[in-house]
Amino acid sequence: MTAWHTGQVVHTEPLTASARVLTLAVPGFSGAVAGQHVDLRLTAPDGYQAVRSYSLARVGADEVVEIAVDEVPDGEVSPYLVHEARPGDLMEVRGPLGGYFVWRPGDAGPVQLVAGGSGIVPLAAMARARATVTTHGAGLFRLLASVRTHADAFFPDELGQTEGLTTTWLYSRQAPAASSRPPGRLTRYDVETYAFAPDAGAHVYVCGPTGFVETAAALLVDAGHDVARIRTERFGGG
């Protein structure tokens, strides 16, 4: 039975100009698997409540919840989490949640991760979980990550040197000088060039704003990937 636990912010760390990592201590929280999320419930002093979902950025340690939140301008909850919350603040946490969009260390075969914006968070958790697997059994991971500019990338240094993972950043607004790909949205060409080929039999995880996920999943299917092997996590938005 998964009920609401009381969590306390113990640490915050800026990630980009609009995003940060929050670490919460949550007594009773245990057994999380990479790809899962938590529901956070915030209550204002007058009783007003809001519930939002956030993916776990890292799994492993029990009673600790690490999330990475990108600010949605004019949002109700994300600006609070990115700019206002500080160590000592309390909020309610429900989870870990969801057994569908997950990767477990025992899962065999290659894995293709496709992220738009903050959709990289649960995929980073999967890559981090993969890196802790020491046996030779674990398949290779590839990550295609779409971000506006280099400055908007989450965990770029770490994801550039994670064991078993090859990361390709795709810039939609402005690409660094060294990048040969012109800035732009994810295309069929990107999928065919940087992702595993369909016959590699990779499991595919797609995550990000709803519009990105729907576009990316359609491109993957067009490029020949088996629908049955594609799992999606839509974050919402227009």
């Binding site: 204002a44 007003y48 109700e76 206002e84 919350a85 500080r86 309390l90 909020m91």
Partner: peptide, 13 residues
């Protein structure tokens, strides 16, 4: 009784 989150107000006039 729910836990009150300091600093969270929503956006309400």
């Amino acid at each position: 009784m729910a836990v009150v989150t300091r600093g969270f107000g929503g956006r309400r006039p």
